[in-house]
Nucleic acid binder design. Structure first.
Lengths: 347, 347
DNA sequence: TTGTACGCGTTATCAG
DNA sequence: CTGATAACGCGTACAA
């Protein structure tokens, strides 16, 4: 069945909300007077204004925003297109929604399921609904294909996953700075013999973090031999296994940088079982600061936080600026922050 | 057409999206013919239809859904009002969004932040935007206050948190059945001396689960002395502490029912450190089946799953039915499912 | 101070 | 086969 056929079968909803006509009639005035009374416009006898307002509240009148939007050419809605629903979108979502809600803008949430076809369908729906702007949130910092807005000029901002167009606005976490934060923290605490356990090597974030780690250690004059680096998946079992492998190879390791907090949990478990004390013998740092996981670790895990709520806020804020006619472009990197707990030692 | 009007047209073409007028003019037909051509209605010369369609695609024409909705009296949007953004809403959200997207309905996501005022503001915005229906998703199974729709007849379904109105439709996880699933599983594996570690006693879910546990054990003829029950917070540290307390009191315990998966992780950690073998000595069952946490536990944690995606699907499905004129009411309890891993022993 | 008339973009009815 | 016209609900010049 085509979209058209579906639309044809649509039943008209029987419920009839009162319109401005009903209010006008109830108050014994014309529609325009009614409109003015309700919107505090023009010059009206105060008595009339009151009468109209009473009629409105009595009828439970609510102006139809579809009509208003049609007239104004602005819908006060924004589309949020996410690649999929996964934990990291939550703070992003929260930051976006809060910021937009404060400006009385409603958010359409669309899940593309990492599928170009669904992405396109959602995009069409959003444009058809005349959204004032669109936020496209990716899952990773890797480059993604641009969305096709056709001839539409609807303001658009990419979050997390950038595209290859210098005219597009892309907001992303600064993975390099985040990694630097973590490594420099360990250095400052006197660690020297570093190891790195992280995720799939084909991801940009994973590469950036490893490269940054090398650079920071190079700056500090410390070594990072290849056999102290392990790439796998970002989960707990891999962290557990990798830590054991690394410490079998080289028991002198005194610092482990982990690609994620759950992975770090696996590392901590392995160390504890080996009788290695954290942070006395080895310092461990996580990544992404997943609160419940990091705080419940033993010892509580020091980690770096991408400030995703803030990123969402910024995305919404910049989109609002674009909607108001101020052009924005370029790739912008937003800072991580270090969250010190106990797994790296006292400062 | 005057020069002024021409100028206006030119500007409009450059800035705003083309309307059906523009397509009609470009194709050299009237608006109504244009509409028919684009919507496959009426009888048109095939050549005309083609011409119109070409003009439409060339101009990048997209029908304005605001206008369509105004006319139809249906917006093809639904509002989802959540109490706050937290992990459990995600599968709910996914189930709702997927189901609605399949019917070409877009979802407004509104976060009430557990605040009545914000809830009310969002509700007003949703009604003003003429949503076809509303889903109100709560955080806990405790009774909540009904939302006030005023005179509006907009279909509404409550998810997770029910209200006190028999005419309302409330969809919720069947906590009692979920708890039964967990306990009966342990019983079937030959466990006899049960303990229970769970969350705050003032929550309905916590009470229901404990009561159900009592009942199941009573049915089976087993005992559940008060000193084998501990209530606190549903987090990992409490699980760790509580397990130690319980096993100090009574080393014979051979089954622990936990109020959450993270709490169970704490329990598992404590048991491992005490040299208690899971599942050989003690069986442990979690609650809510948080995948990454349950699977990464050692041993992997058996848990019960509330099927929240399914719950979201059902909510959307029922809302669609209500939108199509079929009334729904009452509190409906949806089943959990048992996810067997290794923490309770082989079946 | 109040009312009339028009337009926003679209679809449906009816006349040609 | 095609086109003019009337809605949908609202806001706003303009007229009275």
């Amino acid at each position: 069945m085509t979209d058209q056929e579906t639309a044809n079968k649509v039943v008209r909803l029987g419920r009839v909300a009162p319109t401005i006509h009903d209010v006008a009639r109830a108050a014994g005035v014309s529609i325009s007077t009614c409109s003015k009374a309700l919107n505090n416009k023009g010059k009206l006898k105060i008595e009339t204004r009151e009468r109209v307002r009473n009629a409105a509240t009595q009828l439970g009148f609510r102006p139809n925003e579809l009509a208003q939007s049609l007239l104004r050419g602005r819908s006060f809605t924004v589309g949020l297109l996410i690649s999929d629903i996964y934990p990291r979108v939550m703070p992003l979502l929260a930051g976006i929604e809060d910021t937009l809600a404060a400006e009385h803008i409603s958010v359409f949430l669309c899940n593309a399921h990492d599928d170009r076809t669904r992405e396109r369908q959602h995009l069409n729906a959003l444009l058809a609904k005349q959204v004032d702007g669109i936020i496209v949130a990716g899952r990773r910092v890797d480059l993604r294909a641009p969305v096709d807005l056709g001839h539409s000029q609807t303001p658009l901002v990419y979050v997390y996953s950038p595209i290859d167009d210098p005219d597009a606005l892309c907001l992303m976490p600064n993975e390099s700075q985040g990694a630097r934060l973590a490594i420099e923290h360990l250095c400052a605490l006197g660690r020297r013999r570093f190891a790195h356990i992280s995720g799939p090597r084909d991801r940009a974030a994973i590469q950036i973090r490893e490269a940054t780690m090398r650079q920071v250690l190079d700056e500090q004059g410390y070594d990072l031999p290849a056999q102290r680096i392990l790439h796998g998946s970002l989960d707990e079992p891999f962290g557990y296994a990798a830590a054991n492998i690394l410490l079998d190879r080289d028991p002198d390791i005194d610092a482990i940088s982990c690609g994620s907090d759950v992975l770090a949990r696996g590392v901590l478990d392995a160390l504890r079982e080996r009788g290695v004390c954290v942070p006395d013998d080895v310092g461990v740092v996580g990544y992404h600061n997943m609160e419940p996981i990091a705080t419940a670790a033993r010892p509580p895990l020091t980690s770096v936080d991408a400030n995703l709520y803030e990123l969402g806020h910024r995305a919404a804020h910049d989109l609002l600026a674009m909607i108001n006619g101020q052009p924005r472009a370029g790739v912008h990197l937003l800072p991580f922050r270090l969250v010190v707990r106990q797994s790296c030692g006292a400062r």
